[in-house]
Amino acid sequence: MSVHLGYSIPINVFGPGLCIAHRGTIVVNKDTIIGENCRIHACTNIGSGRDNVLLAPKIGNCVYIGPGAKIFGNVEIADNIAIGANSVVNKSFYEKGISIAGVPAKKINNKGSDGMVITATKIISVPALHEAVERPL
């Protein structure tokens, strides 16, 4: 399926609630760690730095990754950050709930990813799943 849709996403890289906005090229390094409820767009590359291929990004929960974003190296991205389209992220951002953009990326405002990410893990809870199973069709 990944070949047909243009994805190169190894298993167990993303936490639950991943939202792929539309098909297109998405390449993610196998050593990347990404939290829950991430929204990612096409033409995105998340990879290791050239100095050490084992040091890949660590990305928090509820992060919005805009189309064409490049995130690489031993960087950390805090929770609820929005990464603008075509941004190049090559340093860490530890402040939660901000928006970053540019080449190289820098903080542009305090809006963050609120309203841009669907928190699927909160919508689909275990009790709701049990109720759906027990309810007759």
Rank of each mutant, 00 (worst) to 15 (best):
A42H: 11
G6V: 11
I77D: 02
S48G: 15
A101R: 02
N90K: 02
T32G: 07
P16M: 06
S87Y: 10
G15C: 11
H22G: 08
I20V: 12
F14C: 11
R39Y: 06
A132H: 11
A132F: 10
R50H: 11
N12A: 07
G24Q: 04
K91M: 13
G49V: 02
L55H: 04
I65C: 08
D114H: 14
S99W: 08
N37T: 04
V103H: 12
H22T: 01
E36H: 09
L129C: 06
H130V: 13
K58S: 11
A85F: 06
T44N: 09
S92G: 03
F14I: 11
A132C: 14
F93W: 06
G112N: 01
K70E: 01
G73V: 05
I33N: 01
H22W: 01
D51A: 15
S2R: 13
I108Q: 07
V88R: 04
A69L: 09
N61A: 10
I83Y: 02
G24V: 05
N90E: 04
A132V: 13
D51C: 07
N61W: 12
N109K: 00
G6R: 07
S8N: 11
S99Y: 05
Y7W: 15
I83R: 07
I65Y: 02
I46Y: 04
I100N: 05
I118E: 11
S87V: 07
I40Q: 05
K122G: 12
N74D: 15
I46A: 07
H41Q: 13
V53R: 12
E76H: 11
I83L: 10
S113A: 10
I26Y: 02
S87M: 09
H22M: 05
V126K: 15
P104V: 15
A101P: 02
G84D: 02
N86F: 10
P57N: 07
R23E: 12
Y64I: 07
N86T: 11
V133Y: 15
M1Q: 13
G49L: 11
G112F: 06
K70A: 12
F93M: 02
A69K: 09
L5R: 14
A69R: 09
Y94T: 14
I11L: 14
V75H: 10
N45A: 15
I83C: 04
A82Y: 03
